[in-house]
Design a protein around this nucleic acid. Structure first.
Lengths: 188, 188
DNA sequence: GTCTATAGCAGGATAGAC
DNA sequence: GTCTATCCTGCTATAGAC
């Protein structure tokens, strides 16, 4: 890996564990085994590097999404598969945890994050609507609201897991949603 | 208000908007209109002050919880009332947003936060079980899982609102859960 | 209790040699 | 492209006078 690639990779890791504000240029240089000179040769600033790192994280996560959503399974199964995905609950969401920082919502890091969540919700809503058209899910449900609730439960699962220092919180939150979906499926 | 009270009040505000790491002693002093000398006269350190501020925030929020949960309404109504509470979605959860910071999960600030969420989930689960015993909610639902899902949806609502810079995300997430609960209520 | 002065250190970035 | 030296600022805290 080139120095530039190592810097990006290190930044992606540190953003996950430390967040944007607490991640210092020196932390990145040390983790990437790269000198200060190289850092500022390849990137204009910490924000510039972070913006590119967040862009890559968003792309990675959208690819993961595609792997779950673009299958031949019935639409509602794909929604359930999303809920059942393995997650590093205590580490937090690579992308969701960043939005709590003032320095992130007020700079160039936000757009790739918004993009990820917009796409997630859009795909979930679409799948739910398909399920409804196929008669696999109650028509009275509001697909858009449900999509928001599902993505919120996952993000909240991360928060609760960290707050209670217990990875099972994620499992409970997603299982709770899953149970409700299956209930609605049975009684349509 | 005494200088000590002003310091605590300022810290509570800054924790909400800036978070723990980005909130500096100088920020607090300035907002409280108190000199550096006073700051370190009343508190040992930034962490010490923050710990006390978080303790108070947790207490405040538990009082808000009591106001919603300790009424004479039917149990399931109280759960719905919790979901319908007004929230400053874009500002984030006063307490939930803190747990994403490494410096918070690794120090004395976490316990009051854990306490709040533990109590929230316990009360929600209890109310759901009451509703089940009264025949107002399906027995096949797992109250503990649902309580986790409900509290997660609220926390996730905050995250999504900030990520998409749209306060309606909170409303959609909580309405989504609300709809599912009402669906289950109708078809028990 | 409150003030000002000061200290030590880290964050973020620049300069110029190699 | 990479290295070392250097700069300025802000963070966190201490010291000692009033």
């Amino acid at each position: 890996m080139t120095a530039k690639e190592r810097l990006l990779s290190a930044a992606k890791d540190l953003l996950w564990d430390y967040g944007y504000e607490k991640m210092s240029p020196k932390d990145i240089q040390k983790k990437a085994d790269v000198g200060q000179g190289s850092f500022y040769h390849h990137f204009e600033s910490k924000e510039s590097l972070a913006a590119q790192a967040v862009r890559e994280i968003s792309d990675d996560m959208q690819n993961t999404l595609s792997a779950v959503f673009e299958t031949s399974k019935p639409p509602l199964e794909r929604v359930k598969d999303y809920l059942k995905q393995p997650r590093e609950a205590l580490r937090g969401c690579r992308i969701g945890k960043l939005v709590q920082e003032v320095s992130v919502t007020h700079n160039s890091l936000l757009p790739p994050i918004s993009e990820y969540f917009a796409r997630l919700q859009q795909e979930l809503a679409l799948l739910l609507q398909c399920a409804q058209q196929e008669g696999a899910f109650p028509l009275e449900a509001d697909a858009t609201q449900l999509a928001a609730a599902i993505s919120a439960a996952v993000q909240g699962g991360y928060v609760l897991s960290r707050a209670l220092n217990d990875p099972k919180q994620m499992e409970m939150a997603t299982s709770g949603i899953l149970s409700m979906i299956e209930f609605m499926e049975r009684r349509l």
